[in-house]
C-alpha cells in the first residue's frame, strides 16, 4: 500500500547566479512498512528532501502526498497537526525539550493534541526502548544514545504514518549506533511503520529494504534489497 507519493518535487534556494537546486524534480513513492535509506554526499539535498517529506519546509514546486493528502495544500495550522499525527521526526542532535522529562518528551505530540493516552502502547514503547528506569530523568541527565532512544519514542508515540530519521546515529559511537538502528528496525517491524532514514553509513543503509542515492538534488539510483 502506498503511503507517500512525491510528484515533481523541487526546492530552489536563491535566484539568478546564486540559484541552487537542492531538490530537483524528484518523483518517488514509498509503501507501507518500507524501510528506505537515503544516501548521498554532503549537500546533495538528502536533508531537504526529508524535510519536505515531513512538512517542516515548503517546496518551490511539486507535491508531497501522504496518506492521500497533498500536505502542502494544507494551512500552517493543519500542517502542524499533520506533523503531529502523521510524522515522527528523529534528529541527529536528538532535539529534546530540556525542561521535560523522558516520559513527557515521548508524550509531547499526544499532549499537543490533548489526546487520551494509550497507556499500554506507551508503556510497551518505553520498555522496548529500555527507558523504564529513566522515565523521570531530564534529557541533560542522559547519554547521547539514551537521548536518541527518547526521540525515537517521541517519533513513534503517535503511531505516525511515516518516521523520518536524519542521520540518527551521526552523533553516536558504533556500539550505540548499532543499538539505535536495531531498535528502529524492531519498532518498524513490530508496528509495521514506514521508515525513511538518511545515513552516511553504508552498513546501516545495507540493512534497509531500499536504498535511494541522491546527487545534486536528483535520484541517481533507487534499488530494492531483498
Amino acid at each position: 500500500m502506498e503511503v507517500v507519493r512525491v510528484e515533481n518535487l523541487c526546492k530552489v534556494y536563491g535566484t539568478g547566479e546564486m540559484k541552487v537546486k537542492a531538490v530537483d524534480n524528484i518523483n518517488l513513492t514509498i509503501n507501507q512498512g518500507e524501510f528506505v535509506a537515503i544516501v548521498g554526499p554532503s549537500g546533495s539535498g538528502k536533508s531537504t528532501l526529508l524535510h519536505l517529506l515531513g512538512g517542516v519546509d515548503r517546496p518551490s514546486s511539486g507535491k508531497v502526498i501522504v496518506d492521500g493528502v497533498d500536505i502542502y495544500s494544507l494551512s500552517e495550522e493543519e500542517l502542524a497537526i499533520f506533523r503531529r499525527r502523521k510524522v515522527g521526526f528523529i534528529f541527529q542532535f536528538y532535539n529534546l525539550v530540556p525542561v521535560l522529562d523522558v516520559e513527557e518528551n515521548i508524550l509531547l505530540p499526544l499532549l499537543l493534541d490533548n489526546k487520551k493516552l494509550d497507556r499500554k502502547y506507551i508503556d510497551e514503547l518505553i520498555s522496548i526502548l529500555g527507558l523504564n528506569e529513566r522515565k523521570d530523568h531530564l534529557p541533560n541527565e542522559l547519554s547521547g544514545g539514551q537521548q536518541q532512544r527518547v526521540s525515537i519514542g517521541r517519533a513513534l508515540a503517535y503511531s505516525p504514518s511515516i518516521v523520518l530519521a536524519d542521520e540518527p546515529t551521526g552523533n553516536l559511537d558504533s556500539q550505540n549506533s548499532k543499538e539505535i538502528i536495531d531498535l528502529l528496525k524492531l519498532s518498524v517491524q513490530k508496528y509495521n511503520q514506514t521508515l525513511v532514514l538518511i545515513t552516511h553509513d553504508l552498513d546501516i543503509a545495507s540493512q534497509a529494504d531500499r536504498i535511494i542515492t541522491i546527487e545534486d538534488g536528483s535520484i541517481v539510483k533507487d534499488e530494492k534489497i531483498s
Binding site: E76, I81, F82, R83, R85, F89, N95, P109, L112
Partner: peptide, 16 residues
C-alpha cells in the same frame, strides 16, 4: 527559538 522550533516540528500549531 530552537525550543519553539522543536515544538513546531513535532506538530504544535502557531496558535499553540
Amino acid at each position: 527559538i530552537s525550543q519553539f522550533g522543536l515544538l513546531r516540528s513535532v506538530g504544535s500549531t502557531p496558535k499553540q
